[in-house]
């Protein structure tokens, strides 16, 4: 490190950071410590660290997973009003499938959440999607009825939109309620009070036009992608249906 220091003498004054330099691999072996021991120490430390983490993970993972599932469930139920149950469908080779092929990783596939009625009819599909809004990615989930093409509901999962302005996309009830009123898709955003009364219209929020339009765009884009898939038909729900129900 010395030679660097000397060669960069002109830079030294600019470095005010306490430099925690990992100089382990640079120090010549003048000391008695052997490489083997260094590696061994790190290996043991690593193993211990790993063990500790694994142990705690065993303990926390169920809690975390449960919470996540709970959150997802709440979100799906919110955008698919009246549902009490849903199934996850994966997009496999352009078709929906209620189960994954053996050994496949869940995260490799896009998915939707489908709610069935008692009779096995598809009540609605919940789709989650994120796109750039005003500040950063806006992640939403929305419910959609594939038979009528109407929206069932919408919930913002994650957004960093401007507080007091862009965050009205989930704080302004009047805006959010429009998505629960069953508008037809594809949606069009209009300035509040300037609409022509079409069933596809969503009034944007004054002062937060971009954020409002982002929500509308996300839904439209998601549907552009999913409509063809959904129109092919949704395979019947897997066996997880409550006992006694018969698939038709």
């Amino acid at each position: 490190m010395n030679e660097q220091g000397n060669n960069n003498g002109d830079n030294e004054d600019t470095l005010v950071v306490e430099s925690p330099v990992p100089d382990d691999q640079q120090v010549p072996a003048t000391e008695t410590v052997s490489t083997l021991r260094l590696v061994a120490t790190l290996a043991i430390a690593g193993a211990l660290a790993g063990l500790l983490i694994v142990l705690l993970n065993q303990h926390t993972k169920p809690i975390i997973d449960k919470y996540k599932a709970e959150q997802l469930k709440l979100a799906v139920y919110e955008v698919l009003p009246g549902s009490e149950h849903y199934n996850t469908y994966y997009l496999i080779e352009g078709k929906l499938s209620p189960s994954l092929p053996d050994g496949a990783k869940e995260n490799d596939y896009k998915r939707v959440y489908v709610s069935h009625s008692k009779s096995g009819q598809v009540k609605g599909v919940a789709i989650s999607r994120g796109e750039s809004g005003f500040q950063d990615v806006v992640q939403i989930i929305f419910g959609f009825d594939p038979t009528t093409g109407k929206l069932l509901g919408m919930k913002v999962l994650d957004s960093k939109e401007t507080p007091g302005l862009g965050d009205k996309i989930f704080k302004d009830r009047a805006f959010v309620d429009q998505f629960f009123a069953g508008p037809e898709t594809p949606l069009t955003g209009v300035k509040a009070g300037m609409g022509k009364g079409l069933p596809t219209e969503i009034d944007t929020i004054t002062g937060a036009t971009i954020s409002s339009k982002a929500v509308i765009n996300i839904i439209n884009h998601a549907l552009e992608e999913w409509r063809p898939v959904l129109d092919q038909g949704i395979p019947p729900a897997p066996t997880s249906l409550p006992e006694g129900e018969v698939q038709q």
């Binding site: 490190m1 660097q4 060669n7 960069n8 470095l15 430099s19 925690p20 330099v21 990992p22 100089d23």
Partner: peptide
């Protein structure tokens, strides 16, 4: 290049 960058590289870890 090392002389130019040298001092910055180790700092990148943190």
């Amino acid at each position: 290049l090392f002389r130019q960058l040298g001092i910055f590289l180790p700092l990148m870890t943190t």
